[in-house]
Write a protein that binds this DNA or RNA. Structure first.
Lengths: 334, 334
DNA sequence: CTGAAAGCGCTAACAT
DNA sequence: ATGTTAGCGCTTTCAG
């Protein structure tokens, strides 16, 4: 069965044409007569012929590949755990494929510190989508400066030389604050880590929204952005300070769910004693009990836009950052 | 800034050696004098030199790329939603990188029906890891027959010509049944769809375990394997049949969480009225309230093993399927 | 220990 | 409308 590999020259011979004709025919070049094109294509299908991508890329100097670089904060090489991030990647994948590109899944471990050299000079990809700004943006800056075709999923308000696509995090924070206060919260608390670009915006919006609604008694509980950390922090706080808050705006749904678990275990009623709002709208938000009110990020549109902007860059256009709309999804937790 | 691309020949000139020496030096070929090697390598680093992967692949006839093919059942192109699957991919990614390979993230949309042609002949990857056997395995079979280096994440008991790595699903089912009965369940129910290879094993083990424990009053509630479907199905069943079960073995954690939501909304107590056991041990299992007893699958080891077996195949070794150990993690839901 | 040169399979400029 | 051919940048055989 191990059929032997046909090369373009073999296919051309089978079709009784030259390699250039075969090449053009496969690429549907109108220079070639329609019948010839179809004959070659049919033959290719019959023999399960595939162009050698390596040869093609060498010749064309482009790869038709987009790299997705997952930019984790953690120093230790670690697998990703946040369902939201993975959802973003999955939606990017869809969008990339829809444009006829392939997706190289990468990370800082492989790419090292010279992203331009690795991806572009190394002819591994034509452009890169970075998922997650994280805390340190030096490498992103460096790659952008080197002229790497690049789009970043992060906070679009970032003042940087590269293109960012992301949700309106500030507005999301405002909406959350307003909603909590609307529901009767007098002492809402932000749960997260404003050191991250995106979360700093969410926190800023939260404070602004609360202030505008006349609430100044806001708190900030700074934690690692994992559900475990949220669970621990809420437990710790209840033990030490008692229940001195009546609303939580969590920086992500996973964080919100961790916090809710701690509350439920201590018989703090949600939403009666504490109103909770999350961020992201992951699948679990709807499935948790009580279901979680949250700020929905449109990952589908995000993928679409990230890819569109990257391809625009590749075709030499000047593109700029843009902000995705978000929406508050009201459920039982508030 | 846009530095211009160095090719190997340029680097060689800078180093005052021939391209062949430069090439060997970069690959740490001991044929080259140590000092020369180091001089070339240092120069390469200084100039951010990267080999052109396309040229290298064309010459070597191998890519140092492993493709991961996510095999979804759904006809419609769709983004993946199950956090467990994504966790598996993420752990494969880690393992692939650790071996110095890169990861091409693909799907049936891109690969079409001739996987051998697309990946191997097309020189896109040296081998493929398929995640998810799904219901239809014809394409996997076809690729395996064609001689494609291939490892599948699925049920290792599968009687097939290809190598499968997966958990001991049957044992998992048995453990779940025994545990439920141990906890006092007299009428345990399986929630899932035995049409999937892996789930059929889980169901088989569940039945066998129950029978051995002297319980014959098991039920099967056949549903799509999503949390939403589980939620709907449990609601529907409670409305129609009342509470005629006192234990649930869900085919996945997401399904279990959906079922639990329906139970909680109708004030059915977990675990007092109904004991619940899930499968996978996703992050949410620990965060849900009550936390979810489940069968843990070791995705880290899975990634490691999948890659190891694939690389063994690439180096011409004969490899066979193998089973990962699973463990019951007892939490509050049972 | 190092260099010269062939050739991997494709595409496109340049014939015809 | 199609064919001839050069050359993309690398690795490795063969020759020193």
């Amino acid at each position: 069965m191990p059929h032997k590999k046909l090369k373009l020259a073999d296919l051309a011979k089978l079709a009784g044409v030259s390699t250039s004709t075969a090449s053009r025919a496969l690429n549907d070049n109108p220079l070639i007569k329609k019948e010839t094109r179809e004959r070659v294509q049919k033959l290719a299908k019959e023999h399960n012929f595939s162009l050698n991508a390596a040869a093609s890329r060498l010749r064309l100097q482009k790869t038709k590949v987009i790299a997705v670089l997952i930019n984790l904060d953690s120093e230790t090489e670690q697998s990703i755990d946040d369902p939201f991030l993975l959802k973003v990647v999955s939606d990017i994948n869809l969008a990339v494929n829809r444009q006829g590109y392939e997706l190289l899944l990468s990370n800082s471990f492989m790419a090292g510190t010279d992203w331009y050299g690795y991806f572009i000079d190394g002819r591994r990809a034509d452009g890169v989508i970075v998922v997650g700004q994280g805390k340190q943006q030096a490498l992103i800056d460096k790659a952008a400066k080197a002229g790497m075709p690049l789009v970043v999923w992060g906070d679009p308000k970032t003042d940087a030389d590269y293109v960012v696509v992301g949700s309106d995090n500030f507005l999301g924070g405002e909406l959350a604050a307003e909603h909590l206060i609307d529901k009767g919260s007098k002492n809402p608390m932000f749960l997260g880590d404003p050191a991250h670009a995106e979360l700093s915006e969410r926190y800023g919006g939260f404070c602004a929204g609360a202030e505008r609604a006349g609430v100044t008694a806001t708190q900030l509980l700074k934690i690692d952005i994992t559900s475990q950390a949220a669970y621990d922090a809420i437990n710790h706080k209840l033990r030490n300070d008692g229940l001195d808050f009546d609303g939580i705006f969590a920086c992500s749904d996973m964080v919100a769910l961790g916090a809710m678990k701690a509350l439920k275990e201590r018989y703090v009623s949600i939403p009666n004693d504490v109103h909770v709002v999350g961020f992201d709208d992951i699948a679990m938000a709807d499935i948790s009990f009580p279901s979680l009110t949250t700020i929905r990020q449109d990952t589908r549109q995000a993928g679409e836009l990230l890819v569109k902007k990257l391809l625009a860059q590749l075709s030499g256009q000047k593109v700029s950052s843009s902000q995705l709309e978000i929406a508050l999804i009201e459920r039982q937790s508030s």
